[in-house]
Design a protein around this nucleic acid. Sequence first.
DNA 1: GCATGGAGTTATAACTTCTAACGAACGCAC
DNA 2: GTGCGTTCGTTAGAAGTTATAACTCCATGC
Lengths: 218, 218
Amino acid sequence: MTAAAKETPRERYRAQLRAEIKERAWEQIAAAGAPGLSLNAIAKQMGMSGPALYRYFANRDELITELIRDAYRGLADTIRTAAASGADLAGLGHTLRAWALDDPQRYFLIYGTPVPGYHAPDDITAIASEIMHALLDAAQPTAASTPPAAEVARLESHLAEHRQWAGDHPASPTALRRALHFWTRLHGALSLELAGHFTGMGFDPAELYENELRHLTQ
Amino acid sequence: MTAAAKETPRERYRAQLRAEIKERAWEQIAAAGAPGLSLNAIAKQMGMSGPALYRYFANRDELITELIRDAYRGLADTIRTAAASGADLAGLGHTLRAWALDDPQRYFLIYGTPVPGYHAPDDITAIASEIMHALLDAAQPTAASTPPAAEVARLESHLAEHRQWAGDHPASPTALRRALHFWTRLHGALSLELAGHFTGMGFDPAELYENELRHLTQ
DNA sequence: GCATGGAGTTATAACTTCTAACGAACGCAC
DNA sequence: GTGCGTTCGTTAGAAGTTATAACTCCATGC
């Protein structure tokens, strides 16, 4: 749609089939989780024999890594788009929750249980820091900075002295803390909700989430 | 050691072998995560052939469910013991983190990525609410209650109206909120740390965790 | 028109979980 | 002490899985 007038028919077909494989893979993951993903089953669904898929992905791990990459890319794009539309931290929080609820297993592919041996390739960690960057942008205090509450002073000074994760972003200590809290607190509430740990407890997870959002810009 | 003078030798042997199977299973999970657990590999490690294990566990799921149960039991005991020793909410927080860091995959077996179809048996959810009960005990405000901050008033009133998860526990609205925040915020910081999402960022996860602990009794 | 390369096939190896059928050993009752 | 029955562990095998190798066949590019 964008570049690619120089695509050969073969490349078009190849890209299309890769996309369809990934589409089926997402369906399987949504239905049975990442460990339940079966290359064989995908191939049969598409009407071809198992080993055919190895023309398109070197192995199972490469397919999953590709899905993780796409998930990260999609989240980063979603966050960036929301931020470009003028969303503040709370707005990004709502965007994040909607994105997660849309496909919980996609969220868990990024933030779920890690596989002990696995290390994500560099380009994926680059996307992760791109998300962090967008959070830092939105976490910048708007009004003239009130003096930091005593409760968070210690954390903010620690972050100010250990800010390599912010790269060259000119975030204030308060922004560093807010971005980090955005990440950890929203993940805490969201992942427990997505995992079903709140079902049957009676309260509305959205209320808890909103409460966390209110605290963020505090 | 406790009861069981009436154990037959066969029962002793059986219980011992079940324990050893679970021990090996934990090692495998620590090394490769729950999806990497192989009954066959365990059997070979123990010097017997694959199908022999089916004398002790009906299938792979039953073994994993048993491990989840033991993990929950262990966490509940750890929390309860700490609470009995007079630990406050912050103390329980430290206990939780130490327990999680001791075996991250064990933590993720409880609070990690859910398997879409899976529903935990009732006795496991009973242990979960036992943990919740201990948190509610420790979350009760000590001093004369200051009026709830405006930021949390809405959540506290919502929780006060939807408190079936507290059962018949006489927790105040503030205690309900604190126990819930203990759970979600500590899980947020802890699970991201355990999953390695903080590695290379430069800051000390313990500082973030301590900050969250300070906010709990706020 | 034809050679090349990519796509999909089958066959096969090495795994996995799990069932079935068999033999042997163990322990309890007599 | 001597059976006898339960339980344990075995091998064999079915039905899956990932992944490789070898082969066919068709389309593309020259």
